[in-house]
C-alpha cells in the first residue's frame, strides 16, 4: 500500500519533476512489462511475432482479460471476489448446454446469475460482511451448480459464439482487437463518465461519497453486477474458444484475475484501478504463462510459478519507483 504523494508546496520544482516522472514511470509499468515479455518472445522465437503467432498465443487472453476486468470492478469498491473463477466455469457450463439447446432459458439463467452478483453486493454492503468469506462460500455454490448443469465434461458451444471467437479480421489478430475494444469501453465507462468517478470514489473515500448524498448500496450493487456481467462474458468467450465445457474449466481464473488487476497497476484499497492496465496485465500473464516458457524450454510445471514471479518482479519494480515518488 503506497501512500499517495502529497504536494505540500514546499517541495522544489526539481523534486516535483522527479515525482511526476516517477508517477509517469509507474503508469507505464504495466505496458513496460508487456513489452519486455514480448521482446523476450521475439528474441527466443521471431516467427511467433506474426499474425498467426499472436492469434494463437493470445487466444486464451480474451477470457482472462474479461475475468480480470470483472475482478477489477470488485476491487475498485475495496472488495475481493474469490469466486470469479468458479463463476466463469459455471457460465461456461451453461453456455455449452442451455444456451445452445434452449437459448431463451440460457439467457435467463445467465441474466439471473448477474442478478445474484448484484444481490451479493447488496448483502455485503447491508450486513457489512467480509467479501472474502462471502465470495469464498459462493465459489462452492457456483462450482456445485456447474457440476449439476454439466456432470461430465462435454457440451457444445453455440454456433454463433464459435463464429465470433474464430473471426479472422485483416492484418490485426482478433485477440488484439478484442483486448483494445474491452480496454477502451471499460476505460471510457469507468474513468471518463461521471458515474464512473462515483463508482471509483466508493472505494476511494466512501465516507465523503455518503456525505455528498450518494448511495453506497447502489454503487456496490452496480460494481458487483458489472463484475457478474464481465464474468458471464468471460465464460462465454472461453467456451467459444474451447468449444466444450467442464465444471472445473475456470478454476484458475480467480487468482489470474487478481494478479492481472494488480499487474495492471491496481491497488487493493482506495479505488485506484486501471482498466487499460488490467487488460495489459491479463495479456502479460497470458503470454508469460505459457508461450514464453515453451520457447524457453521450461517444463509446464513452472507455468504457475512464472505468474507468481512476474507478479513479484513487477511489484518490486513498483516499490523502487514509489520510493522515488516520495
Amino acid at each position: 500500500m503506497t501512500a499517495t504523494p502529497i504536494d505540500n508546496g514546499f517541495k522544489g520544482s526539481a523534486a516535483r519533476n522527479a515525482a511526476a516522472r516517477a508517477r509517469l514511470l509507474r503508469a507505464l509499468l504495466p505496458a513496460l512489462s508487456l513489452a519486455l515479455v514480448l521482446a523476450a518472445i521475439a528474441w527466443l522465437n521471431p516467427r511467433a511475432i506474426s499474425y498467426f503467432g499472436f492469434s494463437l498465443m493470445l487466444n486464451l487472453a480474451i477470457p482472462i482479460a474479461l475475468a480480470t476486468i470483472a475482478q477489477m470492478f470488485v476491487i475498485a469498491g475495496n472488495e475481493l471476489d474469490l469466486s470469479i473463477g468458479t463463476f466463469v466455469g459455471f457460465v461456461g457450463c451453461v453456455t455449452a448446454t442451455w444456451l445452445k439447446d434452449a437459448p431463451l432459458i440460457g439467457v435467463l439463467i445467465l441474466a439471473g446469475s448477474i442478478g445474484i452478483y448484484a444481490l451479493l453486493g447488496a448483502l455485503i454492503h447491508l450486513r457489512n460482511l467480509p467479501s472474502i468469506v462471502v465470495t469464498l462460500g459462493m465459489s462452492f455454490v457456483w462450482q456445485g451448480l456447474a457440476i449439476l448443469v454439466l456432470p461430465k465434461p462435454g457440451g457444445k458451444a453455440p454456433d454463433w459464439l464459435l463464429a465470433i471467437m474464430s473471426f479472422k479480421p485483416l492484418f490485426i489478430p482478433f485477440p488484439i482487437i478484442a483486448a483494445l475494444l474491452i480496454a477502451a469501453v471499460v476505460h471510457f465507462g469507468l474513468m471518463r463518465t461521471s458515474y464512473g468517478v462515483i463508482l471509483r470514489g466508493s472505494g476511494g473515500n466512501p465516507a465523503a461519497l455518503r456525505r455528498a448524498g450518494w448511495s453506497l448500496l447502489k454503487t456496490k450493487i452496480v460494481l458487483f453486477a458489472l463484475a457478474g456481467l464481465f464474468g458471464v462474458l468471460s465464460g462465454m468467450a472461453l467456451i467459444g474458444i474451447t468449444t466444450s465445457a467442464d465444471a472445473n474449466i475456470g478454476n484458475g481464473y480467480t487468482l489470474l484475475a487478481i494478479a492481472g488487476v494488480i499487474l495492471g497497476g491496481g491497488e487493493f484499497v482506495g479505488g485506484r484501478v486501471s482498466p487499460i492496465g488490467a487488460v495489459i496485465g491479463a495479456l502479460t500473464l497470458a503470454l508469460a504463462a505459457s508461450p514464453l516458457l515453451t520457447f524457453m524450454h521450461i517444463p509446464p510445471d513452472w507455468q504457475v510459478a512464472a505468474n507468481g514471479a512476474i507478479l513479484i518482479i513487477v511489484l518490486a519494480a513498483r516499490v523502487l519507483i514509489s520510493r522515488r515518488e516520495r
Binding site: L129, V134, G137, M138, F140, V141, G144, L145
Partner: peptide, 16 residues
C-alpha cells in the same frame, strides 16, 4: 454438485 452448493450456501448463510 448439491453437496458443494449446500456447503457454500450454508457458509454464506452463517456469515450473514
Amino acid at each position: 454438485g448439491v453437496r458443494l452448493l449446500l456447503t457454500g450456501l450454508i457458509i454464506v448463510g452463517v456469515i450473514t
